[in-house]
Structure formats: structure tokens, C-alpha cells
Simulated assay, not measured.
Amino acid sequence: MNNTSKTNWEKLDSLSEEEIDTSDIPPLTEEFFSKSRWWKPVSSLSVLVKIDPQTLAWFQSQGEDYEQKMAAALRIYAQAHQVESE
């Protein structure tokens, strides 16, 4: 799970608005907005979960946001197995 960006952020930050190519972005139409919907993100819960020390150490080695990565891994697992239980 290495999400290191290969984007040259310094070059991107140095571009002016006129230099940014937006030709591949479709215009926002009334149809787009008629199909869109607002949603409020579900707030997260704090729970106590027992995990082995090696698993925790691995997630911690992935960076300061290791808790979010653990939550994402659980969400992916749950979604992958949701079809089986339905």
C-alpha cells in the first residue's frame, strides 16, 4: 500500500490559471446538477479492537494516518464480503 505521488507538485504549483489545460473537463450542465445530490458524510466511531502487535506495527509504519488506513482496509474488506452475505 504505497500511495507515493509521482506528481511534480512544484511544477504544478508554479502554473498560472491560463496555463492549466482544462479542455478534457466537460462543462457542468443543468442535467449534471439535476442528477446530483447532497450527502452528509457519516461520522466515524471510536471502538476498541484487539489486533496483534505485528499488524499494528505494520500499519503504523505506513505513516501518521495509519488509523485512517486501517479504517479503509476494514471498509474494503467489508465491501468485498458484503456480496457473499446478501
Score class of each variant (00 low, 15 high):
V49M: 13
T55Y: 00
W38S: 11
A80H: 09
W39M: 14
S16M: 01
Q79G: 09
S46F: 08
T4W: 06
Q62T: 08
S34V: 06
D13N: 12
Q68M: 04
W58G: 03
P41C: 01
Y66L: 04
A57F: 12
T55D: 01
L74C: 12
T29R: 07
L12H: 09
Q68T: 13
P27Y: 07
I20M: 10
W58Q: 06
E19Y: 05
G63H: 08
P53N: 01
P53W: 02
S61A: 15
K40L: 10
N2I: 10
E10M: 06
Q62G: 03
I76V: 15
D24N: 11
L45D: 07
H81K: 07
K35P: 01
R37V: 03
K6T: 08
S43T: 06
N2F: 06
E10Y: 01
L28C: 11
D21T: 02
K69C: 04
M70G: 09
T55S: 15
E30G: 07
K69I: 00
K50L: 07
G63C: 01
K6E: 07
Q60D: 02
S61L: 06
L15Y: 06
E67P: 00
L74A: 14
A71E: 07
V47G: 04
S5P: 00
S85H: 12
T55L: 07
N2D: 10
N3D: 11
S16I: 02
P41R: 11
W9D: 01
W38K: 14
D65I: 04
F32C: 11
Y66P: 00
P26R: 04
W9L: 09
D65R: 13
I20Y: 06
F32H: 11
M1E: 08
D13A: 14
I25A: 03
T22V: 14
F59C: 00
D24H: 13
S34C: 05
D24E: 15
A72K: 07
S85Y: 15
A80I: 06
A72N: 15
A57V: 04
V47F: 08
I25S: 01
I20L: 10
N8A: 00
D21G: 02
Y66N: 02
A71Y: 04
W58P: 00
W39Q: 14
Q54R: 15
M1N: 09
Y66H: 03
Y66T: 00
Q62H: 10
Q62L: 12
A80S: 15
R37A: 09
L74Y: 10
W39I: 12
A80R: 13
G63E: 06
E17T: 05
L28E: 01
E18I: 13
H81F: 13
A78H: 10
E86L: 14
L48F: 05
D24A: 12
E30K: 05
Q60E: 11
L56I: 00
P53F: 04
S85N: 10
T22W: 11
Q82P: 03
N2G: 13
V83R: 10
D52Y: 08
R37N: 07
S43Y: 06
F32V: 08
K11N: 11
L12D: 10
S46R: 15
G63W: 00
T29D: 08
K11E: 04
V49G: 05
Q82S: 12
Y66R: 06
T22D: 14
G63I: 12
N3M: 11
Q79F: 05
S85W: 15
A72T: 11
T4S: 11
P27K: 02
A72Q: 14
E64F: 04
E30T: 09
D52K: 12
N8R: 07
A73I: 09
Q68W: 02
I20W: 12
Q79Y: 13
E67Q: 15
